[in-house]
Computed example of a mutant assay.
Amino acid sequence: MANFATLDELKARLDWTLDADEERIATSALEDASDMACLYAGREWSDASVPRIVRTLVLKACKRYMNNPSGYTQSRAGDETLGWGDDQGEDAGTVHFSADERKLLQEIGGRKPGLISAQVSAWNSVSRPVSAGLVPVDRPGEKPFPMFGADGEPW
């Protein structure tokens, strides 16, 4: 599987210089985010064919992770308190996409949510020929009224 973004692109988005250990973690994060992007989109891309927005989403997820790899919601040192309000919940401390980002990846991959129609039939049922194009008549003894001019081509 290919990484959709490079380590240098991620470094350009961060506010500090990564040490060797952080580079190793960032490389793994890029791999994980790229794999998850393919999973949510439901398709595979190569480095050359990946849409730019997917590359951007991968970088955003990795930056979010690198800014807070331990998943802290609050940090306190002396009389200073720092809080993160990312609404990450159980995803805190992991590489993850937000709900909006997941929805966007699904749409990019062609997996748009919505209504579908599915044919339903009873178990062990037998299909019978349908008299297509006939309108039932409510009078006893009368034949159904033809809706179309011909059986083969209704219009």
Results as ranks from 00 to 15, higher is better:
residue 91 D to Y: 01
residue 74 Q to S: 14
residue 113 P to Q: 14
residue 129 P to R: 10
residue 117 S to A: 14
residue 124 N to E: 15
residue 25 I to W: 08
residue 48 A to Y: 05
residue 21 D to I: 02
residue 66 M to L: 05
residue 11 K to F: 03
residue 51 P to C: 15
residue 136 P to F: 03
residue 94 T to C: 13
residue 89 G to H: 02
residue 92 A to F: 04
residue 8 D to S: 13
residue 70 S to Q: 14
residue 76 R to I: 07
residue 16 W to E: 11
residue 30 L to G: 07
residue 94 T to Q: 13
residue 36 M to G: 06
residue 69 P to M: 06
residue 53 I to D: 07
residue 66 M to H: 05
residue 110 G to Y: 09
residue 49 S to N: 05
residue 120 V to G: 08
residue 7 L to P: 00
residue 46 S to N: 08
residue 151 D to L: 12
residue 7 L to W: 05
residue 136 P to M: 06
residue 19 D to N: 09
residue 13 R to Q: 10
residue 62 C to T: 02
residue 94 T to Y: 09
residue 129 P to W: 04
residue 30 L to H: 00
residue 34 S to Y: 02
residue 118 A to V: 14
residue 94 T to F: 10
residue 75 S to E: 15
residue 103 K to T: 09
residue 88 Q to T: 12
residue 118 A to H: 13
residue 105 L to T: 04
residue 131 S to P: 13
residue 31 E to C: 01
residue 22 E to T: 04
residue 76 R to G: 07
residue 40 Y to I: 00
residue 40 Y to T: 01
residue 67 N to T: 06
residue 130 V to A: 12
residue 6 T to V: 06
residue 10 L to I: 01
residue 69 P to W: 04
residue 30 L to Q: 05
residue 105 L to G: 03
residue 85 G to D: 07
residue 61 A to E: 03
residue 10 L to T: 05
residue 63 K to T: 03
residue 1 M to H: 11
residue 60 K to M: 09
residue 55 R to H: 07
residue 88 Q to R: 10
residue 144 P to E: 14
residue 145 F to G: 04
residue 75 S to D: 14
residue 85 G to A: 13
residue 122 A to T: 05
residue 115 L to C: 10
residue 90 E to W: 01
residue 132 A to E: 12
residue 91 D to R: 05
residue 65 Y to F: 09
residue 37 A to G: 08
residue 97 F to Q: 04
residue 155 W to L: 14
residue 105 L to S: 00
residue 87 D to C: 11
residue 56 T to D: 15
residue 37 A to L: 01
residue 154 P to M: 03
residue 134 L to A: 10
residue 103 K to R: 13
residue 63 K to D: 13
residue 65 Y to H: 03
residue 22 E to H: 10
residue 124 N to M: 11
residue 149 G to T: 10
residue 81 T to E: 14
residue 55 R to Q: 07
residue 11 K to Q: 04
residue 31 E to A: 06
residue 141 G to W: 00
residue 99 A to H: 13
residue 153 E to R: 09
residue 18 L to P: 06
residue 140 P to T: 11
residue 104 L to N: 07
residue 25 I to A: 15
residue 46 S to G: 11
residue 148 F to D: 01
residue 118 A to N: 12
residue 55 R to F: 00
residue 21 D to A: 09
residue 21 D to Q: 13
residue 129 P to E: 11
residue 1 M to Y: 06
residue 148 F to W: 07
residue 96 H to F: 08
residue 136 P to S: 10
residue 112 K to G: 15
